[in-house]
Write a protein that binds this DNA or RNA. Structure first.
Length: 474
RNA sequence: CGAGAAGUGGCUCAACUUGGUAGAGCACUACAUUUGGGAUGUAGGGGUUGCAGGUUCAAAUCCUGUCUUCUCGACCA
């Protein structure tokens, strides 16, 4: 049986310490000398590259083009849309000096690029023929967060931000939905994350947006993680920036806008959802290396055979790594678990004699013995099983932490006793959200658009308008 | 940003209370023996104690400031 890894605290004992020990032991990140700026190590960055490859292809398939905008925003430009600046002002970093000279106008390091895009859109949008404009950029942004945690909340954030402009509000709204569907599908199919998609309340929506859709994931400890957003801006920014186009009726009109983004936080979500006390667990579809081959003993025949097997796997598009270090087998097994390779392949003298290898799947740590001929087939089958099993396991765990409360008393009791999300009928008033926050520290996650509210709001007793999930968040 | 805790080789910690030449285990390097769940022996390299200042004949140890990390709030992808 597998042995617990030294220095990894159990996730049931101290979830926070467990998380940081897993990402450190698996060599995903390192702390840098400035608070909130993490070093993403090659193995961690490789996971991000897998995610980027899939999403970028999806964006391009749906007609988006990549570009690169500046990193600095003049203060006057940030100030153009008042809700936007009010929302972001508390967390922007400012450049006030260039070389030895104090700048006449402060420049803010982009916390998001809406205003930069708008400033540019103003120059390039003239006619309905210029629309829709579907842009995306992969970049880093800076938000001066108070509390930081690798992947989940950093000051320098690696992300993707899509910015689009449309002729009609209907088209822009469709774009908003199309993109959160892409996110939802990606997270379900690739990251094996069961997510809840819904609309943010007025209180929680993006600064300057008309509506914000959110992808809410639930971590192992029942905490929520906002794992992607898609905003509909209507004409708010277009009006503030004076972006107009000549429409099909020969009249000047303000275009309709969206933006949407996901970040390296997704890596944190994957870890906090799937990993365990043995270390990292990665869904095969985003694992940088699928099979870790471990030769046992120094027999040349075994080493040659394992090279041959690795080659065979690679020829079948299965990424591999061979652990040829001098470490003992036990060490290699444990290390393989820490790193979260979906499958470990062991080949020792006993196996070699029988023309078999031992395959160990990371999610369940179950072992199977297969003949040389069956390796590729069995590995493919296992990878698929692991991917599905991770999703199913996460789904069951999450569903077991979904609650519904009818009365405020019941709500408070669940909030106090059980981690997870609590669904209630809600009146729609911010004051009730604030009261709930003050009483329980829970915040609204999202409004469930497909569900119809019934009865009254348990908080104030007025007629309920929405079904809403509440939960604690990272 | 508020409350609390902690920073000593890469990691985990000791020495701090009561100032007096920084120590251990793991990791690392070399060689040998080992190899189916974190091997063993021998030899070796590596720190001036987060950073800055102060007190003192003398500071890891006492004082002040500051930075970073962790926990809990507030803020947030």
């Amino acid at each position: 049986m597998a042995q617990l890894v030294k220095d990894i605290v159990s996730r049931d004992v101290d979830f926070g310490a467990w998380y940081t020990s897993v990402i450190k032991k698996a060599d995903l990140v390192d702390y840098s000398t400035t608070k909130g700026s993490m070093i993403i190590r090659p193995y961690g960055y490789a996971i991000w590259e897998k995610m980027v490859a899939v999403l970028d292809a999806e964006f391009k398939k749906s007609g988006h083009q990549n570009l690169q905008m500046p990193m600095l925003i003049p203060e006057s430009l940030l100030n153009v849309e008042k809700d936007h600046v009010a929302g972001f002002a508390p967390e922007v970093a400012w450049v006030t000096q260039g070389g030895e000279e104090t700048l006449e106008e402060r420049l803010c390091v982009r916390p998001t690029s809406e205003v930069l895009f708008c400033d540019h859109f103003k120059q390039i949008i003239k006619s309905y023929r210029d629309l829709p404009l579907l842009y995306n950029q992969w970049c880093t942004i800076v938000r001066w967060e108070k509390t930081t945690r690798p992947f989940l909340r950093s000051r320098e954030i690696l992300w993707q931000e899509g910015h689009t402009m449309h002729e009609t509000s209907e088209e822009a709204k469709q774009e908003t939905k199309r993109m959160f569907h892409i996110y939802e599908k990606f997270q379900r199919e690739y990251l094996a994350l069961p997510v809840i998609v819904g609309k943010k309340t007025e209180k929680e929506k993006f600064a300057g947006a008309e509506s914000t859709y959110t992808i809410e994931a639930m971590m192992y400890n029942g905490y929520a993680l906002q794992n992607g957003t898609s905003h509909y801006f209507g004409q708010n920014f277009a009006k503030a920036f004076g972006i107009q186009f000549l429409n099909r009726e020969q009249k000047l009109e303000y275009p309709y806008q969206t933006s949407w983004g996901v970040t390296t936080r997704m890596i944190g979500a994957v870890i906090m959802t799937h990993s365990d006390d043995y270390g990292l667990v990665l869904p095969p579809k985003i694992a940088p290396v699928l099979v870790n081959l471990i030769p046992i003993g120094k027999d040349t025949d075994i080493l040659e055979k394992i090279q041959e097997i690795a080659k065979m796997l690679r020829e079948n598009d299965i990424t591999t790594t061979i652990d040829q270090s001098e470490k003992s087998p036990g060490f290699k097994f444990a290390e393989s678990e820490v790193k979260g390779y979906p499958i470990r392949l062991e080949l020792g003298p006993r196996d070699y004699e029988n023309h078999t290898v031992t395959l160990v799947r990371r999610d369940t740590l179950e072992k199977v013995t297969v003949s040389f001929e069956e390796i590729v087939m069995e590995v493919k089958k296992l990878l698929e099983e692991i991917q599905n099993h991770l999703y199913q396991r996460a789904l069951e765990r999450r569903n077991a932490m979904l609650y519904e409360a009818k009365t405020y008393q019941e709500f408070k009791q669940i909030a106090q006793e059980k981690p997870g999300f609590i669904k209630i009928n809600w009146c729609g008033k911010t004051s009730c959200e604030e009261k709930i926050k003050a009483d329980t520290t829970l915040k609204s996650r999202c409004i469930l658009e497909d569900e119809v509210a019934e009865g009254t709001c348990p908080c104030c007793g007025e007629k309920a308008l929405y079904k809403v999930y509440f939960g604690k968040q990272y």
